[in-house]
């Protein structure tokens, strides 16, 4: 009997200790792996970037008390459904496949999908040009699904935990090309580390796989939060905050109606 009580006390303590934060807080999950220029961590441990600024702006507009919580991209949807986080705002494209498991807010950005490769190569973003080549993509992304569906003739499709690792292997010459979001790749090829490579153009669109822009993911049925986020996104689009944040990072708008 005594033992049972001890176990009970330990479990209760663990549960209470775990739930110390107040219930009002909204945990906004971002990928723990940096995804510049949308989200990256500096040496002081602070997260910044376009998406982080937008998260803060949306939360302020929607009057939500947000806490940015980095979780592994690979398990970000289970983290949402499991309750570790309440919202996903990690450049996640709105796709039908994901909608089976979670709900999405309205999109807050939408950019084309491109292929990057070595400057000296004649790779084009077409299936026949990529035949026999090694393509690198990030795991659990629309790009992985797209490459599997459209570039199945490629010599090999290599799957990385982060886009940064794929970029790194592109520089090292271990892969011939990588497919990702145009902004992320444009940012990469503009850095000294990515000087070897250039963007070879955008891939043929496939809305079913590539989705309808990037939205905030919430648990199924969490409509109250989704409505609040929608209102927040609409507000920062209307009052110019969205455009202002964008102008701090990019030359052109990355939102299309």
């Amino acid at each position: 009997m005594k033992l049972k009580n001890i176990v009970k006390a330990t479990v209760t303590a663990a549960v209470l200790g775990a739930g110390a934060a107040s219930a009002e807080e909204v945990k906004v999950g971002i990928a723990a792996e940096p995804y510049p220029p949308f989200a990256s961590v500096d040496s002081a441990g602070n997260w910044n970037g376009w998406e982080v600024d937008v998260i803060n702006a949306v939360c302020e507009a929607a009057e939500l008390d947000c806490v940015i919580t980095p979780v592994a991209w690979d398990g970000i949807i289970p983290s949402l459904t499991g309750g570790t986080i309440d919202v996903i705002m990690a450049s996640m494209s709105i796709t039908d496949e994901r909608k089976k498991t979670i709900d999405f807010s309205d999109p807050y950005y939408d950019t084309p999908t491109v292929i990057a490769a070595d400057k000296n190569s004649d790779i084009e973003p077409t299936a026949e040009s990529l035949k026999g080549k090694i393509i690198g993509v990030q795991a659990s992304t629309v790009h992985q699904a797209y490459v599997n569906a459209h570039f199945s003739d490629a010599g090999e499709i290599r799957v990385y935990q982060t886009q940064d690792e794929a970029n790194q292997d592109l520089v090292a010459g271990r892969i011939d090309a990588t497919q990702a979001d145009s902004i992320a790749l444009a940012d990469f090829v503009s850095t000294p580390g990515g000087a070897c490579c250039e963007i070879k153009g955008s891939v043929p669109d496939d809305k079913a796989i590539l989705g309808l822009g990037v939205g905030a993911g919430v648990r199924k049925g969490d409509d109250a939060l989704r409505e609040k986020l929608n209102a927040g996104i609409q507000k920062i689009l209307d009052d110019g905050t969205h455009a202002e944040i964008t102008s701090n990072y990019f030359k052109t708008s990355i939102y299309k109606k």
Partner: peptide
């Protein structure tokens, strides 16, 4: 197994 997890969104 990771591929299945991410493709099927099951854990």
């Amino acid at each position: 197994s990771s591929r299945v997890r991410s493709d099927m969104l099951i854990v």
